[in-house]
Design a binder for these strands. Structure first.
Lengths: 329, 329
DNA sequence: CTGTTAGCGCTTTCAT
DNA sequence: ATGAAAGCGCTAACAG
């Protein structure tokens, strides 16, 4: 069933049907009513494909993210999707795993599908977008990078000041008298690097200049956190606080400390990062840093929309995280 | 830039360009090479919209789910997306919030976009699909309901035996001597109802016939679990085990017990449901039920693909959950 | 092996 | 206020 069938049944031309469907002004009320009835009766839905053929837009955007199962990404993607839905767009979800080849594949496909815009969620894309093959694919579509900086003409960035986020955690610990700190760093993304820098710089402001010596690399997981802390204990290192770049790692740290018979926070304090459900589940509840994924998402949608619809030109922005006090400090 | 531009530049007709792009056999190797070079040089990507106009498919499916932030749904959606991507389809993500109006809105839009198929994730859709307005929208598109039963001609269902899942937890507790059990039930979806039935039936098999009296309704959250247990303690009820329909609720139950000075599992045992990260984070780690979202997702994709491509006719299926032993029992 | 041509279902001038 | 007609970019007969 197509627009011709409707036109025939209503005894009008396809132009009139089109006008009615698109709620244009210049249609005789009686004609409009009749066409609407036929439309209703047949439960007719016009083809967005044919429409897109003419209008050059499918009212669709793509979200590229590493892995939607990671709570931080799912919260961001959720808000982006809901917000775009509200504005009449639908969202294609792409889990790239952070891999170049997958990213290229997805970008090629969404370009063929003529998406109106792309949101890149995750700081991995900072690195990926530097690659020529990616830049080439991003050239013809509006892009927003959530949590990162992008050097492309038709793009905006929403930054989160992760350096400041970790520094806040350090200051908080120092003020409470926890002055022997270690930092558990995971992965090697831009964001992880910033967090680590925040740790080192914060220590510097307290006169500790060999901060690098207090950084331990480990995996982003409970086991990663446990292993790092167990190693510290084994090495008989002195410490009163563990600062983590991820809640999950912090959970592991807490577990290892408790299992070793230490008390949290009486003997050792722990901070996490992301203000995820994980922080609230942890016993005692983690002090953590809220890096505002919902706000990042809202801003990203705002910016991408302005790029797509060429309306008011907003500009890239930076969001300040916030410390959330739990019971581990 | 379109197929005509490429054809002109290569000095051939659009048919030849089309043939080269679609890797058809009957093209002179020399011609093919030349066209491929031009394609490559211009970094050309054909329009999936125009292609869809002719072929009647955009190689796109839609996932409707309640809320992608819920780990169980994000795990399911992740696997569905990855699997479809592997098969050359892209995925539209729709967070309906479980609401009728949103569901109708999304279904209408994806129908306009002529998606090849729809996956409904979550047992809420059992209830929603009974509504006439939903059934009407589902009539013309292949549908699979992940975790539910659907009575539609062009549809399949992947069921998870949640009744059995909870019964397993009860049996496990009984065998270990925990014989005074309460069940924490959340929400009122079909799935929650099945789980609760599983609890009552399992008790029956141990000669306890007033199982309903041991069911407590509460919210799906840490607070919900805490509140329920605190109420039990306040009412001085006798119990040695708490069976939960959700890991998050179980986490709350554990917290409330520990805060009350009780030991888990020495004094009271607790079981969760979903085998989520939450279970591993909980201290002690939860005994929980793995309801295999990844397997549900795989089967759903399998079935939807067979429906779309009209290949081998698989049939609806039921998946058996599995008990995962933690330290709370 | 290659080109010509007729659609796919819609929007949008341009007439009337 | 309405209709006729020209595309949008592509695929798939069909003809050569």
């Amino acid at each position: 069933m197509n627009i011709y069938d409707i036109a025939k049944e209503a005894g009008v031309s396809i132009s009139t049907v089109s006008r009615v469907m698109n709620k244009k002004e210049n249609v005789n009320p009686a004609t409009r009513k009749k066409v609407e009835e036929i439309l209703e009766k047949n439960n007719y839905t016009p083809s967005a494909i044919a429409r897109g053929m003419v209008s050059k837009t499918m009212k669709t955007v793509a979200i590229l993210t590493v892995d939607i199962r990671v709570p931080h990404y799912s919260r961001t993607a959720y808000t982006i999707e809901r917000e775009f839905s509200r504005r009449g767009y639908e969202v294609l979800l792409c889990n790239t795993g952070g891999e170049l080849s997958e990213t290229v594949k997805y970008l090629r496909t969404v370009q063929e599908k003529k998406v109106d815009g792309i949101v890149l969620v995750g700081s991995v894309f900072n690195t990926l977008c530097k690659k020529e093959e990616i830049g080439k694919l991003l050239k013809n579509t509006p892009v927003v990078l959530a949590n990162g900086k992008l050097e492309l003409p038709n793009s905006y960035s929403v930054l989160v000041d992760d350096r400041y986020g970790v520094a806040m955690a350090v200051n908080h610990l120092m003020q409470r008298g926890y002055d022997k700190l270690f930092y558990l760093k995971d992965m090697d993304t831009v964001s992880a690097r910033f967090k680590c820098e925040g740790f080192i710089q914060a220590l510097q402001s307290y006169g500790i200049h060999n901060g690098k010596g207090y950084v331990i690399e480990t995996e982003r997981s409970i086991e990663g956190g446990m292993r790092a802390v167990n190693q510290l204990l084994l090495d008989k290192k002195e410490f009163t606080g563990i600062v983590c770049g991820e809640d999950l790692t912090a959970v592991g740290a807490v577990k290892a400390l408790l299992h070793a018979g230490l008390r949290v926070p009486e003997d050792v304090a722990v901070t996490g990062y992301n203000n995820s459900d994980y922080a609230a589940i942890c016993e005692p509840e983690l002090t953590t840093v809220d890096n505002k994924p919902e706000m990042v998402a809202m801003m990203s949608v705002q910016l991408l929309t302005s790029l797509i619809e060429k309306t008011e030109a907003y500009s890239s922005c930076t969001i300040q995280p916030e410390l959330v006090k739990g019971r581990t400090t």
